[in-house]
Simulated scan of single mutants.
Amino acid sequence: MSRGEVRKEDAATLEKNLRIISTRIRREGRKVLRDFPITPAQFDVLQTLFFQGEKRMSDISRNLGITKSTTTGLVKRLIDAGFIERRRSERDRRSFIIDISSSGKSLIEKVIDRRVEYLRSVMTEISTEQVISLEQIVSLLLEVMDSKKTAE
């Protein structure tokens, strides 16, 4: 199959639909947070640490696009709640490394489980052939996106 022209309207429709799907999945997963003393902004910090590993405070700020003072407040509350841990950097004793704790990992895993269960319940309404086709489309999109990312 050769590469073809894609109309801007088609790309805009796909972007809109993916955004709607992403928002609905995120909203469903965050229902888990109702049982925990954590805000969506704090959850964003947890996700960053869960998926990307330990970080310095400045890395968290840069990654999330928030000020260092905002990051300090979020991190302090997460430490107090036991969801993350702080330790001195071995390379630079003046700075601290922030990492997710086992209870933080457990919370993220509960949210992911909720998201997966939500998607599973939605996907049961779709035929097997359509699910396979959807998986192929998503796989192709990710493959092209990854190749563009490495080319930049």
Rank of each mutant, 00 (worst) to 15 (best):
M1R: 11
M1I: 13
R3V: 13
K8A: 14
E9C: 14
D10G: 14
A12E: 14
K16I: 13
R24H: 06
I25N: 01
R26W: 05
V32Q: 02
V32E: 00
L33E: 04
D35S: 07
P37Q: 06
T39E: 00
Q42Y: 05
Q47T: 13
L49G: 00
S58I: 10
R62F: 04
L64R: 01
I66R: 01
K68D: 11
K68G: 12
L74V: 05
R77L: 03
R77T: 01
L78P: 01
L78K: 02
I79C: 01
I79L: 03
A81C: 05
A81T: 02
F83R: 04
I84W: 02
E85Y: 05
R87S: 15
S89N: 15
S95F: 13
I97W: 09
I97E: 06
S102F: 09
K105A: 04
K105R: 14
I108H: 03
R115V: 02
V116A: 07
T124Y: 12
T124S: 11
I126P: 04
Q130E: 13
S133N: 12
S133D: 09
L134A: 07
L134N: 08
E135P: 02
E135H: 11
V138T: 08
L141S: 08
L142K: 06
V144N: 08
V144D: 10
D146W: 10
S147K: 09
A151K: 15
